[in-house]
Every structure is written in C-alpha cells, then in structure tokens.
C-alpha cells in the first residue's frame, strides 16, 4: 500500500554496523566479558539477599561433600601409615629348641649368602626373653619358669628383587626345608589382609561419594527450580523483550556455581574441624603403639579437588534444572 523505505529502519541498521564494524571486535568482547562478570556477581548478590536460605542450601551441600572427603582423608592417612610396611615383608624362622647358638649362627651366615635374602636379623633366646618380658608384662611369670621357653628367631628380610607373592612363597617353602627350622612364618599376611580391607573401604568411599554427588545435584537442581519459579514473571518479561535463553540461563547457572563453591568451602571447614577433633585421640592411640604417627590435615591438592568438584556439581545441577524448567516458561 505505502512507500516501503522510510528512515525508520535506519537507526537499527546503523547501530548494528557500528557495534560490529567501527568499535571493533575487541570492545565487543570486552563488553561481553563485562556482562558475564556483572551477571556473575549479580547472582552472588541475589544469594546474599537471602543469606539464611543460601546458607542452608550450601550447608546441605557441604555436609554431603564433607562425608566422602573426610573418609577419604582418613583412608589416605591409614594408607600412609601402612605404606612403609609394604617394604618390610619379613619371614620369621623359629628354630627348633635343640639347636644351639653355634648352629643357629651358622644357619644365619649361610642364609646371608643367598641372593634372595638381603638381611638376616639374629634374635637369640636371651634377647627374645628380654624383649618379651619387657613388652608383654609377663616378666614375673617367665621368671618362675625353669628354662627359657622361647626359641631362637632368625628374621629374614627378602631382597628387593623378590616382590611378588609367588616368589616370596617359594622362598618360604625353601626356608622350611632347613632341618633347623621349626616354623617359618610370613609376617605379611595380615598386612595383605589390611590392604584388601583398605581397598574395599576405598571402593565404598567412591560409591558413597557418587551417591552424595548425585544428592548435591538434586539439592542444587531443586533450589534452582524454586528460584526459577519465583522469578517466573521476570523470565516472561525478559523473553518478551528479546532475551535469549542463554541470557536468562546465565544468572541461574552462576547461582549454581556459587552454591557449589560455598558448599565446597563448608565441606572443607567441616573436614578440617573433624580432623582437628580427632587429632588428640589418634595421637594418644599412636603413642600406645609406640608410633610417631600424626594425623595429616587436608592437603592442598585435595582442597583444590574438593572445591572444583563442588563448584562443578553446583553448576551442573543448576544446568540440569534450568534446561528442564526454562522451556516451560513462555509468555502467553
């Protein structure tokens, strides 16, 4: 009906040309990053407007994450404690009662020449008695005996070349063939069992961590879902005036990020406090075992991993909720 070209369309075209062309990509990128940064802190500000709700959500996340993180630290400590035992595979040779000192030292000497054996400790019957009465508390009972009931013990340290259980088993069999030997015992078995237990425990912690991570996703997802519902009108308005899905999504994703980060920090604090709380009794327990063992604090690497995982979980939980619920909100 009417004239098609009117100056009305010009301003729009002009601004667009200017924003891409003259001012250049750099300023565009700068504005883009600035926008992101603003939304980032805007989301933080929104959370701080409801400090109690934010704290509660973060605390739930924190507790959920503190459990596997704390258990992992304790397990690490245990593994550290037992790691030096791994190299201390020893075979105790209890010699027959009728073997005298000359015979036993001869055997020790002979064993020392073997390639598979790095070291042989010689514990005489007298030494054994002394040690036993000192450590066991049965000293008085032992004095009542006519003669020393303890046998001579040779503690055999296998060489480093022998590191498989098969090789150690072979060595054990060979040692048993010596006529002087009454009993050859591998001191390793209980360590192996302990390791098997720790392995099982480690798996258990991973399962627990996976389940609790899922819980964190759901907690954040639910919180963000409520936030989306609360701001339904705002979302509709923004959609009406041309806000893209990405624009609407952004503050919610950043909120998820912050929830995750706060949760991670709370988890870190909880683990540290728990370790501090355990420090003293563990030290006492270690003392009873004549050990210098000290409970290690949460390492820096682990802290980083915890915070990163927490943040990622928060972001992901929010992403799931946003993708699920934002599409339902359309202006009508």
């Amino acid at each position: 009906m009417m004239a098609r070209k009117r100056p009305a369309q010009r301003p729009v075209a002009e601004t667009r040309g200017a924003s891409v062309g003259k001012r250049g990509l750099r300023i565009g990128l700068h504005t883009y990053l600035l926008r992101h940064l603003q939304t980032f802190f805007y989301a933080l500000g929104q959370l701080f407007q409801k400090p109690l709700a934010t704290l509660m959500t973060s605390a739930v996340i924190g507790i959920a994450l503190a459990l596997p993180a704390g258990l992992h630290t304790l397990l690490n400590n245990t593994q550290q404690l037992t790691s030096d035992w791994n190299n201390s595979t020893r075979i105790s040779l209890f010699l027959k009662q009728n073997i005298n000192e000359r015979q036993s030292t001869a055997l020790a000497k002979k064993l020392r020449t073997k390639n598979e054996i790095s070291k042989v400790d010689y514990i005489s019957r007298e030494q054994a008695l002394e040690e036993f009465s000192a450590l066991s508390g049965f000293g008085d009972a032992l004095l009542a005996l006519d003669e020393n009931p303890l046998p001579t013990v040779l503690v055999v340290h296998p060489a480093m070349v022998i590191n498989s259980s098969v090789a150690i088993e072979a060595l054990l069999t060979e040692l048993r063939t010596h006529p002087e030997v009454d009993l050859a015992q591998l001191d390793m078995q209980w360590v192996e069992r302990l390791y098997a237990m720790l392995d099982t425990l480690s798996r258990g912690i991973w399962i627990l961590a996976s389940l609790l991570s899922l819980a964190v996703l759901l907690v954040v997802g639910n919180t963000i879902r409520l936030a989306i519902q609360n701001r339904r009108d705002e979302i509709v308005i923004i959609k009406l005036i041309g806000g893209t899905d990405a624009f609407i999504r952004r503050p919610f994703l950043y909120a998820g990020f912050w929830y995750g980060l706060f949760g991670g920090i709370i988890a870190f604090i909880l683990v540290q406090i728990s370790l501090l709380f355990l420090q003293e009794p563990v030290h006492h327990l270690a003392n009873l075992y004549h050990s210098q063992f000290k409970l290690n604090k949460f390492e820096l690497v682990n802290t980083f991993v915890l915070l990163t995982c927490a943040t990622l979980l928060g972001y992901l939980g929010s992403w799931l909720a946003v993708n699920r619920h934002l599409k339902d909100i359309e202006p009508s």
Binding site: S19, G28, T31, R35, I237, G242
Partner: peptide
C-alpha cells in the same frame, strides 16, 4: 535499560 542489557550494549 533491560532491552539494551539483553542486546549487549556498552555501559
């Protein structure tokens, strides 16, 4: 300002 913020204009 909202439409301009959405469109990514500078401050």
């Amino acid at each position: 300002a909202l439409p301009l913020v959405i469109a990514g204009n500078s401050r």
